[in-house]
Design a protein around this nucleic acid. Structure first.
Lengths: 253, 253
DNA sequence: GAGTGGTCTAGACCACAGA
DNA sequence: CTGTGGTCTAGACCACTCG
């Protein structure tokens, strides 16, 4: 087995979790330092540190090295994959896209950095786009924030042969986003595929998303194809696993 | 940030990972003990222990307490959610279902325990099935194995008013599985929804799936509805996160 | 510089597996 | 009984943040 003797650090984690649930420590508030918690709970600091990693895994706390440990203020974000590409969704309300709409629904303030760039396709991307390795692609790199907390990285790849000279190469591709432009260019996406893996963050992801090695990301690879089966976009999306809930819906046939 | 000074244990993890990748330690093989690794690599055992937890998170190794640490022998299993309910998929080849087919495709030997049971619906299940809390439901509990390694837990709930007196209450519901029976009973599922969360395993899951608290599970809640929008089945699926790759596909409209 | 969390070493005890 | 990994304490050093 693996779990019979629970370990003191789990008791400590339970006690701190209870304090958070009961409002002793409020959302966004700084917890006592590990030394203080160790004193109060009568254990060594290393045990408190391990307990806090449990809460970190659960997404209950957030750590700023050199500053302290905070109670998480961002609720779990729901991402409904199916439907988010629809024009109505993309243009709904004040939102500039599905991501914006989801965050506003939770009372959060979305923010997003975009960097379009012409580059050459790595092997995995080229394979999925069915182009030659090293061929030119447009890479649109996005970092998304909720209340200034980073919650998503995404890199969208589109063959340069499609994107060249179009608004797709701009930071803001215009109303309805990139999918609307692809539609107008005669490359309307008709079928979407998403493939998911859960893994520890790599160094770049840990840095950008402020994650510790004890946390996980959900790596989503989305491929958009035309009705002719031609892949027109590959999107590599990285989400802090504790911050998201994903949903999918499809017909039986 | 969180990751600038990499930490010695990550170097140790890299070295052990390299040894596994290069075949120094083979699939299914027992690694040297933590004491031995600590001696060879010139670090304290606690550092080796922490390094092994990194590899555990990546799914590269498996730990049997009291015995040792083994190189994982099960490859990542792919689960294509869309299409697995189709009759052709369910009845394909020698397989008794989509799960069987997926494992056989990887050269693994599937095995599965099923325990049907009449019970009363918990709040979350009742809400999704749109029945009264505490109303009777059929619960079909499954534990699935690949080469005798547990790889999935699932509990399928069907209102007792539908299941009573049908083959659904049997351990083997017959050809094509439960969905075929629902179809014949006039409750053919027409729309499926899956909602995913990543979290640490609870005590029961850790025990059944032989997981350590440092690992994660993907908790999938699937709801099957008829074309009239009536929920007929709720399935709570728990997967060791490091062992699976999930995929979904859907049309743009 | 003082305070924070991240990590490492040292040594110890425990729970579990198997001879 | 011995050997394994899991955990705890003690004490130390480091990197980062902020005044």
């Amino acid at each position: 087995m693996s779990n019979t003797a629970r370990g003191q650090y789990r008791e400590v984690a339970d006690r701190i979790r209870d304090s958070i649930d009961q409002g002793v420590y409020q959302r966004g508030e700084l917890l006592p330092t590990e030394d203080q918690l160790a004193d109060r709970l009568g254990v060594h600091r290393a045990t408190v540190n391990k307990a806090l990693k449990v809460l970190l895994a659960e997404g209950l706390v957030r750590v700023h090295r050199g500053k302290g440990t905070y109670v998480t203020e961002i609720p779990v974000i729901h991402r409904a994959a199916v439907g988010r590409q629809r024009r109505e969704t993309r243009e709904a309300g004040q939102a500039r896209g599905a991501f914006d709409a989801e965050l506003r629904a939770l009372g959060l303030t979305p923010r997003s950095d975009v960097t379009p760039e012409r580059t050459s396709a790595a092997a995995e991307v080229a394979e999925k786009l069915e182009i030659d390795e090293g061929a030119d692609v447009l890479a649109r790199r996005r970092t998304m924030f909720a209340n200034d907390v980073p919650v998503q990285l995404a890199v969208s790849y589109i063959p340069w042969s499609i994107a060249e000279g179009t608004p797709l190469t701009e930071a803001d591709p215009g109303p309805g986003g990139a999918y609307s432009r692809l539609e107008e260019l005669g490359h309307a996406p008709a079928v979407f595929t998403e493939t998911l893996r859960v893994r520890p963050p790599d160094a770049h992801e840990a840095d950008k998303l402020k994650l510790s090695p004890d946390q996980r990301v959900i790596a989503v690879t989305r491929v958009a194809r035309t009705s002719a089966g031609q892949a027109v976009e590959v999107n590599n999306i990285v989400l802090p696993a504790h911050q998201w809930e994903l949903s999918y819906e499809w017909p039986a046939d």
